[in-house]
Computed example of a mutant assay.
Amino acid sequence: MGKIVLITGASSGIGKEFAEIYAKQQATVVLASRNEDKLVAFATQLHARYGAKVFVIPVDLSRADGPQLLFDEANRRGLTIDVLINNAGVGTYGFLHERPIAEELAMLQLNVHSLSHLMMLFTPGMVRRKSGQILNIGSTTSFYPCPLSANYSASKAFVLYLTEAAANELRGTGVTVTALCPGGTGTEFFRSAKMDRQKVADAKALMDPRKVAELGVKALNKRKVVFVPGLQNWLLTQAPRFLPRHWVTRTTRSVIEQKR
């Protein structure tokens, strides 16, 4: 069957681009998302375009039982995952004390708990086979706190730290872990998070999702632990190392606030 790649959040955005890249390489692609209709339509397109084998596993990873359901279904179908791309994630916007608690908890389940849970489920098999790759999607906000997206930026900091720690633990096992930390990208992210009126959401400043995915795959294959695509984004992630924390937080808020 060749290399088998599991992509979460595969029905839109960067996840779709990852699927295109691997299908073009004739890998077997496993698409996971809660939107079954979009997944099936996309899988049909990928197979017709590239002749690749494509499997669809509809699952809601904003639920606590989502990761186990995904893992069990992959095993039931005899799919031994060689590459896990933890792409599924959402953002939220607003003052933390005013945000709906249920929405914030669902976001943390998806961005933090499900991502870590999937790693814990799939990594042992990779270690036994002495081969595997894991790509976790972080953000430039993995490197600094974001007022008005407090839980979101904290969730992406978790992704960065988890990746760095796990990559160290897995040295010598044949399994690698990479955190891809893009800045603003031209996907549905800002609209779905109700952040499309942000200054940072200006279309002129957004990276192309295909380019982000291509750079992410290259970083994964080069065994990089952390990769920030784009020079401007990289500089943005380095600045907090040299500036006072209160200044970083104040500046971040000025960028993330809605246009007036």
Rank of each mutant, 00 (worst) to 15 (best):
T163C: 03
T80L: 08
M1R: 09
V83L: 01
I101D: 04
R253T: 10
H97D: 11
I101N: 03
R223S: 13
A203N: 09
K53W: 08
E20S: 01
V56Q: 01
L180G: 02
A167K: 06
R129E: 08
G132V: 07
K156V: 12
E98D: 10
R223Q: 14
G174I: 10
K224T: 07
L115S: 10
Q238C: 10
A203Q: 13
F42P: 01
G51R: 10
F55D: 05
E257F: 04
M119T: 05
A52E: 05
R128V: 13
F55I: 07
A102S: 12
N136R: 02
E98R: 09
V83T: 06
K224S: 06
Q45L: 13
S114D: 14
H97G: 01
G89C: 08
L135R: 00
C181M: 09
T8Q: 08
K156M: 11
K218C: 05
Y161D: 11
A165H: 09
Q26A: 12
Q68T: 13
E73F: 07
Q26H: 12
I256P: 04
V40M: 06
G66D: 12
I21R: 01
L235M: 14
L215W: 04
R129H: 06
A193S: 10
T44P: 02
R76M: 11
G216P: 02
V40T: 12
S155L: 11
Q238D: 03
G125I: 13
E17C: 05
Q109D: 13
V225A: 03
I7Q: 00
V228T: 07
A19G: 03
R128F: 07
V30K: 00
I101V: 15
D82V: 03
S149K: 09
D37L: 11
A10L: 02
E98Y: 04
L180Q: 03
M195P: 02
L118K: 05
I101A: 13
E20M: 03
S62T: 15
Q232H: 07
R99G: 04
V255K: 14
K224D: 08
T92Q: 11
I7K: 00
S12L: 03
F190N: 05
M207F: 03
L215H: 02
L115C: 11
I7C: 00
T187W: 06
S139V: 10
A219N: 04
I101P: 00
T8H: 09
V29Q: 00
G78H: 08
G78N: 09
S131F: 04
D196G: 02
R63C: 11
D65I: 12
A23S: 15
L108H: 10
L162W: 06
G91N: 05
T141Q: 14
L236K: 12
G174Q: 06
I21E: 03
T173P: 04
L84G: 02
S116G: 11
S12Y: 02
L61A: 09
K53P: 05
V90I: 15
A203D: 10
H47G: 14
L46Q: 02
R253I: 10
E104P: 01
V54G: 01
Q25K: 15
Q109E: 15
L70R: 05
Q258R: 12
L110G: 12
T80N: 07
L206G: 04
F122L: 14
E169F: 05
